[in-house]
Amino acid sequence: MSDLTSALVIKALDGLSERSVVTANNIANAASPNFRAGRVNFEDALAQAATQGRAAVSAVQPQVLTDPAGSDVRLDLELATASTTATRYAALIDVLGRELQMDALAITRNN
């Protein structure tokens, strides 16, 4: 696995973690009047940075946008987001874990 890939995976994990926090906040405030739900966006910026090398990837910050006023929190959609986020997070952790295993293999089987 290349350096760029692991940087991408780590940035994506950061973004998903931020998204889980914002989604939890949206759900907690589902009954708050005039509450504007938050959205986390990082995929587009990350995809663009991936073409420009590692430094660009490291500079990507997840963006938090707020929904326009007057839109209600849709509980089902928020729960779907929470569940998707957790699944994608688990998948990326798996990728990172495999990379670490390969590194460990390289360290232990080099004699």
């Binding site: 998903l16 973690s17 889980s20 989604t23 939890a24 759900i27 907690a28 589902a30 509980l75 928020e78 729960l79 929470a82 569940s83 986020t85 957790a86 997070y89 688990a90």
Partner: peptide
């Protein structure tokens, strides 16, 4: 209930 589900999703992560 939705808060419990969200909490479980975060816990899994």
């Amino acid at each position: 209930e939705a808060n419990i589900v969200a909490m479980n999703a975060a816990r899994q992560m």
